[in-house]
Design a protein around this nucleic acid. Structure first.
Length: 561
RNA sequence: UGGGGAAUAGUGUAACGGUAGCACGACUGACUCUGGAUCAGUUAGUCUAGGUUCAAAUCCUAGUUCCCCAGCCA
């Protein structure tokens, strides 16, 4: 075992290192990420993925990808494909690729072994009857009348179940443990149920399917997993996980539970995510507002930023909710380093430079990324008529407003200092149609004489060269940190944020952006990070998604003032 | 009501009987041709009550609060 870090970073690493010291698994570390292929991966899964693959990497071990596909009625290959794609996109490659369904024959043989050992029996009770016999949290259950069936009869019946002689739900195979156990999972849990359903991998080879509890530990065992890491709700299942392995007397991995991820302003359960998609509250599983890996990817998040996020939030057993600002901070940090800058005017306002020669065009040099000198420079066309951001002009400026306002000077990014001389208003509506200004030729960016101090710098785009594009601005999907925090009888969907998507149809971009490709990421200076949409953007009809805004000190000042 | 877990700044997460630290946020200030970034600084915490100890977030006792479990889902 290789220990790279001076000390364990969390209780799971502590456990692993303890096992390393005691030689419990011969110094091996082998984890696995075991999704059920019944939905798309989300940021919560990313935490588990980073944990499992990260542990294997840190300790020089291995990590498998295993599909927990024991319920044919819910699982589909489409999900298998998307899950593999998402794991790879996050930057991980599995050592072994397995399916629980690969183990059906072995699981079946083990079931016979348990029957022969008198530790499992075929039960004829219906689902309702089993429930009635189970007892309650405070009262013990009652034994099934079929509990003491002779071994030979159990064997024969189980074989007939497998042969398809019985209808769905007619019988089950159950473990014979303890109907009085305070842990309900130990009250003779069902091992196999009859399901005449086609499985995405095994087709119609089986009509009985093993349950999760009966499958998971043995699958871990077969793969020689050392540490089987799962979420807190499986803590109550650990005694059963251990029971099967002991009863079968096979290699015994260690199950360790940690708290699943919760994020503010969103929901994470598959059920709710599905509801948002099916109810049309979002455009699909990869809607950029969704916390799915696909949604985050389309939104412009980088794998690096998601990994940094998972690293930052830690691993513990406390049921916590992470502020989504941590996720946003992680992507800002990454994109600040890597995203090329560009100028884009989201809500255009015409600015006319009265003393700039009509027809003249200058190609001005602009820095691509101040954080990365190797990113170089590009040329941006400048002319008499520009677009600036509506927010960057105020006829009556509020306090501390550092932008364009009548009589004031402002620097045009990478260009000249201009002075506002007035506005042209629409005669009938009084709306500002354009802002007029003059420029100072001595202040061209780069000239020694350009160093004059001005209050602010704003971005711009030459009107005649601008590329028009659609820009989609996203905000949190829900309007309150905890969408579930609603009065009795009110659905969480009532807290959906009505402004989570704003579409700007006529943003004006600098021409260098014209040939950007789907997935390309940029920082639109002073606005935020944006990426070309991978679904709807077309050459000549570009669509950009806002990944996240820049930190906006002015917005805070304005809000508090 | 039975069982299983968990409680440390606003949010997360360390400290393993010996200085309560880190990240994010918030707030100051510096710097800046992005009100970005960066830099410097400030703020703020051991669930409660007892006990053991020279010394307790840590050990003991009793409470409080929160989460999970009664699928032939995973």
């Amino acid at each position: 075992m290789t220990i790279e870090a001076p000390r364990p970073r969390n209780f799971i690493e502590e456990a692993i290192e303890e096992d390393g010291r005691t030689g419990r698994y011969g110094g091996r570390v082998h984890t696995r990420f075991p999704p059920e292929p019944n939905g798309y991966l989300h940021i919560g899964h990313a935490k588990s993925i980073c944990l499992n693959f990260g542990l294997a990497k840190k300790y020089g071990g291995q990590c498998n990808l295993r599909f927990d596909d024991t319920n044919p009625t819910k699982e589909e290959v489409e999900y298998v494909d998307s899950i593999m794609n998402d794991v790879r996109w996050l930057g991980f490659e599995w050592d072994g690729l397995y399916y629980a369904s690969d183990y059906f024959p072995q699981l079946y043989a083990w079931a016979i072994q348990l029957i022969e050992a008198g530790k499992a029996y075929v039960c004829d009770l219906s689902a309702d009857e089993i429930r009635a016999h189970r007892g309650t949290l405070t009262q013990p259950g009652k034994n099934s009348p079929y509990r003491d069936r002779p071994v030979a009869e159990n064997l024969a019946l189980f074989a007939r179940m497998r042969e398809g002689e019985f209808s769905d739900g007619a019988r089950t195979l159950r473990a014979k443990i303890d109907m009085a156990s305070p842990n309900l999972n130990l009250r003779d849990p069902v091992l196999y149920r009859i399901l005449h359903a086609e499985h995405h991998r095994t087709g119609n080879a089986w009509c009985i399917y093993p349950m999760y509890d009966y499958t998971h530990g043995q699958s871990d065992s077969l793969e020689q997993i050392t540490h089987s890491i799962c979420t807190l709700e499986f803590e109550n299942h650990r005694p059963l996980y251990d029971w099967f392995l002991d009863a079968l007397d096979i290699y015994h991995p260690r199950q360790i539970e940690f708290a699943r991820l919760n994020l503010t302003y969103t929901v994470m359960s598959k059920r709710r995510l599905l509801e948002l998609v099916q109810g049309g509250f979002v455009s699909g599983w990869d809607d950029p507002r969704m916390p799915t890996i696909g949604g985050l990817r389309r939104r412009g998040y980088t794998p690096e930023s998601i990994r940094a996020f998972c690293d930052r939030i830690g691993v513990a057993k406390f049921n916590s909710t992470i502020d989504v600002a941590v996720l946003e901070g992680a992507v800002r940090e990454d994109l600040n380093r890597t995203a090329p800058r560009a100028m884009a005017v989201l809500r255009p306002l015409k600015l006319v430079i009265e003393n700039y020669p009509a027809g003249q065009v200058e190609e001005l040099e602009a820095i691509n990324n101040p954080e990365d000198p190797s990113a170089g420079v590009r040329l941006v066309p400048f002319s008499r008529e520009l677009f600036i951001e509506q927010d960057d002009f105020r006829e009556v400026p509020p306090k501390k407003f550092h932008r364009l306002t009548p009589g004031a000077e402002v620097r045009l990014r990478a260009a000249y200092i201009v002075k506002c001389t007035g506005v042209v208003e629409d005669q009938s509506t009084g709306e500002i149609r354009e802002v007029r200004c003059t420029y100072d030729p001595q202040t061209k960016s780069g000239l020694p004489s350009a160093d004059r101090k001005v209050k602010g710098t704003i971005h711009w785009v030459s009107a005649q060269h601008a590329v028009q594009a659609e820009v989609r601005l996203y905000e949190h999907l829900f309007s309150q940190p905890d969408p579930s925090d609603v009065p009795e009888g009110v659905d969480y969907k009532a807290t959906l944020n009505p402004n989570s998507l704003e579409v700007l149809k006529s943003a004006q971009l600098e021409p260098s952006l014209a040939h950007s490709k789907p997935g390309d990421r940029f920082q639109f200076e002073r606005n935020g990070y944006f990426c070309v949409d991978t679904r709807d953007s077309l050459p000549g009809r570009l669509v950009f998604n806002r990944t996240v805004t820049l930190r906006d000190t002015w917005a805070k000042i304005e809000k508090s003032g």
